[in-house]
C-alpha cells in the first residue's frame, strides 16, 4: 500500500513539480449502481469490478473557501482592533491569527463572552485606525528628498515637505500635521547639500512619526543641476546637531528590518 502511495501520488510534495496536479478531497459516484442487497443482512455488499468505476461529481476543495469569523484578542495591523469580529479566509485565519493566539474562534460561547466586554478596550488606548500603525511603519522607513531651489533664497516651510511627500505618493491632507524642527533651515546653502533633518508627521491627530528628509539643491537649468546620488543608502549626516542620534537610530532600525 505504501509503495503504491509513493508511486502514484505526490504526497508531501513541498516544492511543486512541473506536472502538479492539485488533487484534493473529491466527491465520487459509482457509474454503475450496486444491486439491492438483502434487508438487514450481516454480510458485506456484493461488489463487482464495474462497481469500482467512479465518476468525479465535484471537488469542493478546489473551490474558493468560505470565510470564517474570528474574534481578535489583540490589535492586528490592517485588520482590526482588539475585540472585533472579522471574517477572513480560513488558511490565513488558522496560520496567522489562531495559532499565534492573536484571535479566537467566533463560537457561540466566545461571542457570549465578548458581549460582556471581556475583550473590549477603551477608545483612548486604541490606535486611531486599523491602518494607522502600518502607515507609521511605512513613513518611518522613508527617506524623503526635499528639492530646493539652487538660485532663489528660501526657508523650509511645511508645504515644501508636503510636496516632497506627494512626489513619493504620500498625500498629507493638512499642513498642520507637519511639524518642522525648531531651528529654521534656509538656503541656498551648499554646505547643507545631501544632509538630513527630521520632521514629525501626525497621523489622525494621534500617532506622531519622525520622517527623515534629505536636502537637495535643484536648478531649472539642465546644465546647472547637481549629479544624482544614492542619498537613501548613505549613512545620514545631520544638519542640526541635536537630531544626530535620532537619525542614526532610525536608519539602524530600518537596516535591521
Amino acid at each position: 500500500m505504501d509503495g503504491i502511495l509513493r508511486n502514484f501520488s505526490k504526497l508531501l510534495s513541498v516544492q511543486s513539480p512541473i506536472h502538479q496536479f492539485n488533487r484534493t478531497l473529491i466527491i465520487l459516484k459509482r457509474r454503475h449502481p450496486v444491486q439491492l442487497q438483502k434487508k438487514n443482512s450481516k454480510h458485506k455488499p456484493i461488489l463487482k469490478g464495474r462497481h469500482f468505476i467512479y465518476d468525479v461529481v465535484e471537488s469542493p476543495e478546489r473551490m474558493k473557501k468560505e470565510k470564517i469569523d474570528v474574534i481578535l484578542t489583540q490589535y492586528v495591523e490592517g485588520l482590526g482592533h482588539q475585540g472585533e469580529v472579522v471574517s477572513v479566509r480560513p488558511t490565513y485565519a488558522y496560520d496567522q491569527l489562531l495559532l499565534p493566539k492573536l484571535a479566537i474562534y467566533a463560537s457561540p460561547d466566545n461571542l457570549e463572552h465578548m458581549k460582556n466586554n471581556l475583550y473590549q478596550i477603551k477608545d483612548e488606548e486604541k490606535p486611531s485606525s486599523i491602518h494607522a500603525l502600518q502607515t507609521a511603519k511605512y513613513l518611518k522607513k522613508m527617506v524623503v528628498s526635499v528639492s530646493m531651489n539652487k538660485d532663489e533664497p528660501w526657508t523650509i516651510e511645511p508645504w515644501h515637505i508636503r510636496v516632497s511627500l506627494r512626489k513619493m505618493n504620500v498625500h498629507v491632507l493638512s499642513d498642520d500635521s507637519i511639524e518642522l524642527p525648531e531651528h529654521p533651515i534656509s538656503g541656498p546653502d551648499f554646505t547643507l547639500e545631501g544632509k538630513s533633518f527630521v520632521v514629525y508627521i501626525t497621523i489622525n491627530k494621534k500617532e506622531k512619526v519622525p520622517v527623515e528628509c534629505n536636502l537637495h539643491h535643484w536648478s531649472t537649468k539642465l546644465a546647472d543641476r547637481l549629479p544624482r546620488t544614492k542619498f537613501f543608502t548613505r549613512p545620514p549626516i545631520s544638519i542640526l546637531p541635536e537630531q544626530t542620534e535620532l537619525l542614526m537610530s532610525m536608519r539602524g532600525n530600518t537596516n535591521n528590518n
Binding site: I4, L5, F8, S9, L11, L12, V14, N22, R23, T24, L25, I26, L28, Y54, E61, D95, L99
Partner: peptide
C-alpha cells in the same frame, strides 16, 4: 486509479 488526499505539514 487511486484517489489520494493531499497532505501538508502543519501545526
Amino acid at each position: 486509479h487511486f484517489w489520494t488526499p493531499t497532505l501538508k505539514k502543519s501545526v
